[in-house]
């Protein structure tokens, strides 16, 4: 079963929910944690995995042999990203804009284009206690987060049957978030009870509905005036799965990289009951352990 944790914006405590859910489940289940926030992975700060391996993630970028090129211009016409362009007497390539789709190589009538791998980031994996941990890291300046997200999620295929995979998605609703959340069996949308939180939640709700992933909302820092949020969820028929109350001691625990479920018994109960609620809410046909 794959559960993704997303939020319409950063700073809602998405990672806190993800790691504490993972830690709670790991007591009885086989758990795999996948940090897909590849621009700013931070779950390892809390889970402290021992890393065991890593792999480069590359995309194939075109290299043009100008001797063989007849300046037909097709490569420039096909590329939607302006990453290859015949100009004057040269064929210019802009590797940092290239999405590695291979279109130009395919269309070149003279075979002047060959492909070379360009590193866009890495995937690293290891274990944090019994939790299998994987995260990806995008190279600074590369615009290509989705291939890294996919590489992180591919590691999931090595997991034993019955493993619960927890995917920590990047904040927002852009391409890498879609890549993280798609194919999940269930998505938790983490939000906080502020007007901004509500606005970003509505965007996230539209996204998961478009992806047809069943979902529910977790309200973090509850108590700061939940009214609008609760009304919205009721009106839209969105299950509210849990509320994590706003308390200074929880914030302090987070700030020092601590684990809520290990420090506060009431938090452990809260996450256990969150899991039961997810199981009860997830639609029929979902593969539950």
């Amino acid at each position: 079963m794959i559960i993704s944790i997303a939020s319409g914006k950063g700073g809602t405590g998405k990672t806190t929910i993800a790691i504490n859910l993972a830690l709670t489940l790991a007591e009885t289940e086989s758990v795999c944690f996948m940090d897909c926030d590849v621009e700013e992975p931070n779950a390892h700060l809390f889970l402290k995995p021992v890393l065991e391996g890593s792999a480069q993630v590359t995309v194939p970028i075109p290299i043009v042999d100008e001797e063989q090129c007849n300046r037909c211009g097709r490569c420039g016409e096909i590329c939607a990203f302006n990453a290859i362009l015949p100009l004057g007497n040269h064929i210019l390539t802009f590797p940092e804009l290239c999405h590695g789709c291979g279109g130009c190589t395919l269309l070149c009538p003279t075979g002047a284009i060959r492909e070379e791998p360009l590193e866009i980031g890495v995937v690293e994996w290891g274990h944090a206690g019994s939790i299998s941990h994987t995260h990806g890291r995008l190279k600074i300046g590369s615009p290509l987060a989705p291939p890294i997200v996919k590489a992180v999620k591919n590691r999931n295929q090595n997991m034993p049957e019955g493993t619960i995979s927890i995917i920590d998605a990047p904040p927002g609703t852009s391409c890498p978030v879609v890549a993280s959340v798609s194919d999940s069996d269930f998505c938790l949308l983490v939000t906080e009870p502020t007007p901004f939180g509500l606005h970003d939640l509505t965007l996230a709700v539209d996204m998961v509905r478009a992806l047809q992933v069943p979902f529910g909302v977790v309200i973090n820092r509850a108590g700061l005036g939940n009214g609008g949020l609760v009304n919205y969820c009721k009106a839209k028929n969105i299950p509210m799965l849990a509320e994590i109350p706003f308390e200074r001691k929880y914030a302090a625990c987070y700030a020092k990289g601590g684990r809520l479920v290990e420090e506060f018994p009431e938090m452990k109960e809260a996450f256990q009951s969150l899991w039961q609620t997810i199981c009860a809410t997830a639609p029929e046909g979902t593969k539950l352990p």
Partner: peptide, 15 residues
Amino acid sequence: TAHGGAGIQSAQFLA
């Protein structure tokens, strides 16, 4: 309004 490479596309347009 290009997603990326606006400057490149503009240069080609002028060329």
